[in-house]
Simulated scan of single mutants.
Amino acid sequence: MLNIKNEVKKIIKKYNTNNPFELCDFLGIWVYVMPLGKIEGHYTYNKRKKVFFINENLSEEQKCFCCAHELGHALLHTKSNVYFNSSKTFFVQNKLENQANEFAAELLIDDALLEYFDGYSLKKISECTGIDIKYLELKFKK
């Protein structure tokens, strides 16, 4: 069984950063920020090259989480392109998306965040920090 928390700890320790854009540089992953309409981001793997596309209309916080999410796909599901996944069952696609979201949450959200916001609901923490509640729920509802 995949232990995403341990995978994230290893990569942070190895590269001494949790910044997904810096990690992409270290790993040789190309990142393009460009207009994507309603799509937040996309990961593709072709000819042994990993490439991310991130929507330029996202906030800086959203771009960071989007990059971390795509990094999760690149490291956990290297050869699984989203277009390929859409031809498979919804369950498998949903599982991969959840794992990529969990990777992003583990990479970007400090374990001590709940202590800092002691007594706050996850909804209130989301409002205060701008972190999407789906990431907070993945990080702290275990």
Rank of each mutant, 00 (worst) to 15 (best):
L2K: 14
L2M: 14
N3R: 10
N3F: 04
I4V: 13
K5M: 10
V8E: 00
K10H: 11
I12H: 00
I12E: 01
K14A: 11
Y15M: 06
Y15E: 03
N16V: 06
L23S: 03
L27Q: 12
L27V: 09
L36N: 02
K38L: 10
G41I: 05
Y45S: 03
K47W: 08
K47C: 12
K47A: 13
K49L: 14
K49P: 01
K50E: 11
K50L: 06
K50D: 12
V51E: 04
V51A: 04
I54S: 00
I54P: 00
E56F: 05
N57T: 07
L58E: 04
L58W: 04
S59F: 09
E60Y: 12
Q62M: 09
F65S: 00
F65A: 03
C66Y: 01
H69G: 02
E70P: 07
E70K: 07
L71W: 01
H73Y: 09
L76D: 05
L76R: 06
H77G: 02
N81G: 08
N85P: 00
K88T: 14
V92A: 11
N94H: 14
E97F: 09
E97M: 11
Q99R: 08
F103A: 00
A105M: 10
I109P: 04
E115M: 10
Y116C: 08
Y116M: 12
S121T: 15
L122Y: 06
K123T: 13
K123I: 11
K124R: 15
I125G: 03
E127V: 11
G130V: 06
I133C: 03
Y135M: 05
K141P: 00
